[in-house]
């Protein structure tokens, strides 16, 4: 029985590895490499911390991540759906396809915008932490999303403190420019993941209240935008699902567009 269960898990994992991510609305083709554009949606690839599984509190996480790690949550449909919206709503010359970026090479410096999810599971080698540190201080922008509750926060900060040991994390006030650079986001609310469709719950784990936080540079500009206790990636991924409420998807798009616009202007 145990053997059968193990085999079943292996088979499901193999399926997830083969097709990757959420497949309900069709398969995604590998990203073409010949498209050149001003903006590339760059998703941070990182190694998970030892012991992190990402299987708590979520719905169906474990089998979807497979060998890729939690960095690829909602990947690539969330990325491509968001890029569709970004191209439609702004004049940003954006590539149609996402760009996974690792800190193991200097390629990251070609992409001044980084998006990272499930960051409660990230960890860095010292050279990677230094690279991310330099990347951000040179003008790079990091947006983190999809981590929930107290434990995730603590784990996120373990990684963040490898990058910036002393730089404070601050709450973003409603009048911060990042919430007004394109859309006025005075009426922000918690954007839930896809679990909302089945449960009506907007939070995960103990992340009841959405936190809009940031790490600023010496001139007060946001360089790490922290979306804690919300799941924007899921909202983008499920934006075309009839069951997922439009108001959440709409808010997620507006937040994402504002963050990208801010990253390109500050």
């Amino acid at each position: 029985m145990k053997l059968a269960l193990v085999l079943l898990c292996v088979a499901i994992a193999a399926f997830a590895v083969q097709f990757g991510g959420y497949q309900r609305y069709g398969r995604f083709q590998p990203a073409p490499t010949n498209e050149r554009a001003e903006f590339a949606w760059s998703r941070l690839q990182y190694d998970p911390a030892v012991g992190s599984s990402g299987g708590f509190g979520g719905y169906g996480y474990g089998f979807r991540r497979g060998r890729r790690g939690l960095w690829s949550t909602d990947y690539p449909k969330a990325d491509r759906t968001f890029l569709d919206a970004l191209k439609r709503l702004t004049r940003i010359n954006a590539r149609s396809y996402e760009q996974p970026v690792s800190l193991s090479t200097d390629d990251v410096f070609n992409y001044p915008f980084l998006y990272a999810v499930q960051v409660q599971s990230w960890t860095f080698t010292p050279p990677e932490a230094l690279k991310l540190h330099d990347y951000l201080l040179k003008g790079g922008f990091l947006m983190v999303d999809d981590f929930h509750g107290t434990a995730d926060w603590d784990n996120f900060m373990l990684g963040m403190r490898m990058v910036f040991p002393n730089r404070p994390v601050v709450d973003l006030p409603d009048n911060d420019e990042i919430f007004h650079v394109l859309y006025n986001l005075d009426d922000k609310f918690q954007v839930p993941g896809e679990q909302f469709v089945n449960t009506g719950r907007t939070y995960e784990k103990d992340g009841y209240v959405p936190k809009w936080r940031a790490i600023r540079d010496d001139d007060g500009r946001v360089m790490v935008a922290i979306c804690h206790n919300m799941h924007l990636g899921d909202a983008w991924e499920w934006a075309d699902s009839p069951q997922y409420p439009e108001k959440f998807a709409g808010m997620a798009f507006r937040i994402g567009v504002n963050y990208v616009m801010y990253s390109m202007t500050h």
């Binding site: 001003e38 003008g139 390109m264 202007t265």
Partner: peptide
């Protein structure tokens, strides 16, 4: 600037 571009951002940062 006719479109959001990285050059715009980095020029602004330099001139700041």
């Amino acid at each position: 600037e006719g479109e959001p571009r990285w050059e715009y951002k980095f020029i602004r940062r330099a001139e700041a």
